[in-house]
């Protein structure tokens, strides 16, 4: 039984990592008032560019960097359309997802079915791995990216809730006109937050293609971006709760195979997606959304001088 739990938790971390990274980014984006449904598209662009870079240069860490840049650039497109042009954020985000899936399929053609020589290998941390239970779960055979994601969580939480930068971000998301009259550059803050979301989504994609399972396959994010949208809501826009949610979804994913002898596989497969639909339903009910703690100005383009 102990072994069962330890094994499950260890795998939970591996699968939760990309979810966590992208969720942290999406929380920042939404906290500034910009809903970005393009997570799936940014993730897959990150995945393909990470793989291509690592494949060509032989340097997987450079691949991760390029993945972040690719995700960031893609998110700026959403930023331009939704912040500068003030278009509907839902439509623009959906378009970004479609664009990302299409472009990655196109650019990825030559890399499909190519084995990757240089990957980011899993590590075991000496000494720490001797800690009973925790050591086995956290420090044996995990990707270094797992630690990066885990370390980012308190940092991003601290910035958001305990620094003036965090207050700036949140005030832009709650009441952009008030923030504007207080001398805050609403557009700049929103652009920055959206690109943080893009960079982290790109890195999450890169983790999938050069660390988690080193290969490029068309459409390999397989709906993970939508889980991120759901997770952001589950986390009520709070990075620490984002970590809990990501771990929960990671566990669901792994357990959907471990529980198969007892529960119908079709039912298990539905669990993460079913909960994602639930979250999207919540998002569409205004009052419910408010009580969940959603930023007041979420999805509202800011037009100076309008109430």
């Amino acid at each position: 039984m102990e072994e069962w739990i330890v094994g499950t938790l260890s795998r939970t971390l591996a699968y939760a990592t990309p979810l966590l990274l992208a969720t942290l980014g999406e929380i920042y984006s939404e906290r500034s008032g910009v809903l970005n449904l393009g997570v799936e598209g940014m993730m897959i662009l990150g995945a393909v560019s990470a793989f291509a870079t690592a494949f060509i240069t032989g340097n997987p860490w450079l691949g991760m960097l390029i993945a972040g840049i690719a995700g960031g650039v893609a998110s700026l497109l959403h930023g331009f359309v939704s912040i500068t042009l003030r278009a509907n954020q839902v439509v623009s985000g959906l378009a970004l997802t479609m664009l990302g899936l299409g472009l990655s399929g196109l650019f990825g053609r030559g890399f499909e079915g190519e084995p990757l020589g240089s990957t980011i290998p899993n590590v075991s941390v000496p000494i720490l791995k001797e800690i009973p239970y925790l050591g086995e779960i956290l420090f044996v055979n995990q990707s270094p990216i797992v630690y990066i994601a885990l370390a980012l969580t308190p940092v991003m939480s601290f910035i958001l809730f305990n620094t003036s930068a965090g207050i700036t971000i949140r005030s832009v998301g709650e009441n952009p006109s008030a923030a504007d009259s207080a001398g805050i550059n609403v557009w700049l803050v929103r652009y920055l937050c959206v690109s943080v979301g893009g960079v982290l989504a790109g890195v999450a994609g890169g983790y999938l293609s050069i660390a988690y399972r080193p290969a490029w396959t068309t459409g390999m994010t397989n709906g993970m971006g939508w889980l991120v949208i759901a997770l952001t809501i589950f986390a009520s826009w709070n990075p620490s709760r984002g970590l809990l949610g990501a771990l929960l979804f990671g566990a669901l994913m792994h357990l959907s195979f471990r529980l198969q002898p007892w529960v119908a596989p079709e039912l298990l497969k539905m669990m993460p997606y079913g909960s994602a639909i639930l979250a999207l339903v919540i998002l569409s009910f205004g009052t419910l959304k408010r009580s969940m703690g959603a930023p007041n100005a979420l999805q509202q383009p800011y037009i100076r001088g309008e109430k």
Binding site: R11, M253, H254, F257
Partner: peptide
Amino acid sequence: VDPSGAKEATQALIE
């Protein structure tokens, strides 16, 4: 086609 699922299913069986 579900590479992530295939990976996790294999891991589950290895456990």
